[in-house]
Design a protein around this nucleic acid. Structure first.
Ligand SMILES: [Zn+2]
Ligand SMILES: [Zn+2]
Ligand SMILES: [Zn+2]
Ligand SMILES: [Zn+2]
Lengths: 131, 131
DNA sequence: TATAACAATGTTATAATATAACATATTAAA
DNA sequence: TTTAATATGTTATATTATAACATTGTTATA
């Protein structure tokens, strides 16, 4: 088992399954608590699975919340270009899939000499319901 | 002492002074350690000052690193539009000041009905030296 | 000047997030 | 079948952040 791409290990599957069912960002320890019945008993087991899932782009980390959410875009499995919409009222988080935005940001350059290969963007505001 | 805008309290000044001298992101506990000689002995004192400094835009939090850096832009003291360049090699972090970028992102809208009033963008890559 | 309201500080304890380190097991290659 | 690589299990601990409450200082105004 276990390859650089494609196959997920047992623990990775368990964690991903649980995150995908949630469709909202989940905290690592909440994941841990909920997969204990599946046999994952300690933080490193969850964090390892998360690290890998983030690495392959199946899961993204919402950095401002220390929370993890399943990828909803088929095209960002490389995990190098992520954008999220976050409501400050109800905490709803949505992955933004906007080709113009991602094209603009992927092509962004400044005169610093930096070669960018990844970005993460988090927008904050209020959703319809929370206004 | 202490107003909603303009004046900084004693602890806020101490923390800001230290961060400004660093010109690189600093961790909260590293700040704590270094301002103990100035009388700040416990985490809440540092975190309160940081919270306030972030709120008024004098300091930004680099979310992907849990680190704090002094604002280098005179125009983002409202702290609602931040962008950073982060080198994965040497960890150098630079605040991006790019009017076109900030205009583009501040004006960003999608069809979700979200009203955005803030964003944070982190670019990752390798700087000249690290390539 | 009292006294109330508020903001800032000091202090102790603890919560929440994440990793180090090491042993074992499983799988894939050579 | 030996080796290397990957994944897992396990315990302990490091790191980041906040709760809770007592005290002090400041401002406003009665
Ligand atoms: Zn995605
Ligand atoms: Zn909302
Ligand atoms: Zn700034
Ligand atoms: Zn570098």
């Amino acid at each position: 088992m276990a390859q650089k791409q494609g196959y997920l290990s047992k623990n990775q599957k368990i964690v991903l399954d649980y995150i995908e069912k949630a469709n909202q960002p989940l905290k690592a320890y909440s994941i841990l608590f909920n997969v204990q019945k599946k046999g994952l008993k300690a933080p490193p087991q969850v964090y390892r699975a998360l690290d890998r899932l983030v690495e392959i782009g199946k899961v993204h980390k919402i950095e401002s919340k220390n929370a993890f959410v399943a990828c909803k875009n088929s095209n960002c499995t490389i995990s190098n270009a992520t954008a999220f919409s976050i409501c400050d009222g109800c905490e709803k988080v949505t992955e933004i899939s906007n080709p113009k935005l991602s094209k603009y940001l992927s092509g962004f350059q400044d005169n610093s000499g930096m070669k960018y290969n990844k970005y993460n963007l988090e927008f904050f505001g209020l959703c319809k319901k929370c206004r």
